[in-house]
Design a binder for these strands. Structure first.
Lengths: 141, 141
DNA sequence: TCTCCTATGTCAGTTTACTTACAAGCATTG
DNA sequence: CAATGCTTGTAAGTAAACTGACATAGGAGA
């Protein structure tokens, strides 16, 4: 038997890269990048989060996140107080416009995700999620 | 039943991002980046490949690939004729030093990969590879 | 043969994210 | 209470990738 599938690392990169491209295409009509979407998505899950935490959740640096947040603030999708009531962390939240944009974006993104998982059964999709989670854990979260 | 695992897209990004970090750490002693490694790895699989094809295989642009190839050429790990014998494509190949560097790198990378898959059975790993391949296919290779 | 189309290599400019560095606030500990 | 350490926000500089554009070489088709 010839077991010559590409290494898992390569497949991971390929799948992630391709998904990113497809998401970018899908979000283009909304003038949103994948990074913007990730940011908004996270802010709905954890409202009032700090930029530093948000950065870690989306796998970028604080500095990059602050640049992106400024863009989103300028477009009125996000708000952040200019001064912290306690500590230095500035709690960031979605504006109504931000929520609306996220709703629209989510629809497009889910379409891409469904397309990606189209060839898999529900069981297989769940197994994929489980395996990826195990990989993350093993690599020392 | 509460089915609230993060979306597969997020898990994909997380796993890939973390794997990239771990590979970068592992390759640091060899003064190689993950991009360098990918490049060398591909060149062993397909010797004499053009820079443009190599770029597509490693998910970067031709321009970026040519910059990286120049670095690898400067370090004596790769060679490329200055003129093409047919067409414009310049066939790129590993030097003996490049092969040696790749051998050393591969050892380190496989260690990381094994760590990542440590929590999975052989069957589960194969299923993961299969699922990722299906995702790539579904997203329109 | 002439033309059109595609692929490759390369140059220039831009964008994006990262690294380094520092000040500010809070918690922990001696 | 003072000191240390950790987190956050921010600024400046660097590095990496990208997009746009162009010339060249070869193949496909009228």
């Amino acid at each position: 038997m010839s077991n010559d599938s590409p290494p898992v690392g390569y497949l991971l990169k390929q799948a992630q890269s391709l998904l990113h491209v497809r998401m970018e295409e899908a979000l283009k009509p909304l003038q949103l990048t994948v990074s913007h979407y990730s940011c908004l998505y996270r802010l709905r899950l954890e409202p009032g989060i700090s930029a530093a935490v948000l950065a870690r959740r989306t796998f970028v640096t604080r500095q990059s996140m602050n640049v992106m947040l400024q863009q989103l603030i300028d477009r009125g999708l996000v708000t952040r107080p200019s001064q912290a009531d306690s500590g230095r962390a500035l709690p960031t939240v979605l504006t109504p416009a931000g929520t609306a944009a996220l709703d629209a974006a989510q629809l497009l993104v889910e379409r891409v995700q469904n397309r990606m998982l189209g060839g898999l059964s529900a069981t297989e999709s769940a197994a994929l999620a489980g395996a990826l989670t195990a990989c993350v854990t093993a690599l020392g979260d």
